[in-house]
Write a protein that binds this DNA or RNA. Structure first.
Lengths: 198, 198
DNA sequence: TACATATTAGTACCTGGTTCTAATTGTTAA
DNA sequence: TTAACAATTAGAACCAGGTACTAATATGTA
């Protein structure tokens, strides 16, 4: 096996399992550990611990900016209990592969997540929604969702949020969301009953 | 500062920044490195490298399972243009981490995907929907969505589909979907205009 | 004061490396 | 054939960030 081939294999092994040590690589590639390390140098692959650290930091960054992970789309502006804006770009994984049109629940998900995020409460959950997909959204398009809180109805009640999603100037989606705020009492009954069964 | 207090602080420091070394902790807590390590032992907190490894493995698992959530739910029964049934189990990645309650758009996504799938057409897209989250769904629960086509209104028109989602006997979600069937002409105009811009 | 608990100190050892020098093996062009 | 060069291997010193263990020294407190 040539050097190029070996390095290509090394790359794909690490790609397939980033948690592999150099010692394990020597067993798989039948070369000395020094060769493995020279290869890693040449390919710019960091050591195992550095790889794990980078993965951990990456995932931590995502976790820390909770809204980013828990939400479909990036929230770029948020005035709690008032309004919010989120941006979401339609990628390969969001569309029907045969026609490149976004699956409805991603567009809905962006609006829903924003509607929930804009409500400033420990527990905020969608109770109901009335939605319209005004026009289909295609691969590569950038959806900008704008949420406006219409009514708050005190603590432990329902809040109403309107969300309009645009691609450029065009409206592609609109939704009226009713969101529960800290609605633990009326809500958890069913949830607990269900939890008892588990 | 008492031992309890210190350990409490240590916990919150590591919570706030899991990438802190014992050496850094000695500076923050003004005790010896041995005390830090005894505290970690007692609290069951693994060393920095182990913490990073766990985070990396966790995030890797999530990345690997990404393709799974492309389809929300498994369709187990399908009579085209008539009815369908889909099953979807709520896993870690579908819930809000802080309370274990499913994010609305997954429950919606299951119903939406089923409503679209049950319509036997080249292109079927959700046009609008009227939905209600009857009760929250928790981690581990299995959602069974049942779709019924209510009206078809000929080719190139709109179909109406009702979806009811249950956990066990309990209704957790209901939705009324209006789905376009091959509605290319009236629909693609906006889509193409937009596509031209890209 | 005696005893327990908490804290600190220090050493040996571990993994999974880096960095460096040096020797050995293969290959190829003059 | 041989000098030159790349590729590979070997080995030792060193590193971070620990664990595991022993032992000494506070600090209460009954």
């Amino acid at each position: 096996m040539s050097k190029k081939e070996r390095q290509q294999q090394l790359l794909s092994i690490i790609e397939g399992n980033p948690f592999v040590t150099d010692r394990e690589l020597t067993r798989q590639l039948k070369v000395s550990i020094q060769t493995i390390r020279l290869d890693r140098m040449e390919l710019g692959i960091p050591e195992l611990r550095e790889r794990m650290k980078q993965m951990a930091e990456h995932s931590y960054d995502q976790v820390r900016s909770l809204p980013v992970d828990e939400v479909v789309g990036d929230i770029v502006d948020l005035q709690l209990d008032r309004s919010g804006i989120s941006i979401f770009e339609i990628r390969e994984e969001h569309v029907f592969s045969r026609n490149g049109i976004a699956r409805g629940h991603y567009v809905f998900g962006q609006a829903n997540s924003l509607a929930v995020a804009v409500i400033n409460d420990e527990i905020a959950l969608t109770a109901s929604a009335d939605i319209r997909f005004v026009r289909m959204v295609r691969l590569g398009e950038k959806c900008i969702a704008k949420a406006q809180v219409r009514s708050l109805a005190g603590r432990n009640g329902k809040a109403e949020v309107d969300v309009f999603t645009y691609v450029g100037e065009e409206l592609v989606f609109q939704g009226h969301f009713v969101v529960y705020r800290s609605a633990i009492e009326e809500y958890s009954e069913g949830g607990n009953r269900s939890a008892d069964r588990h």
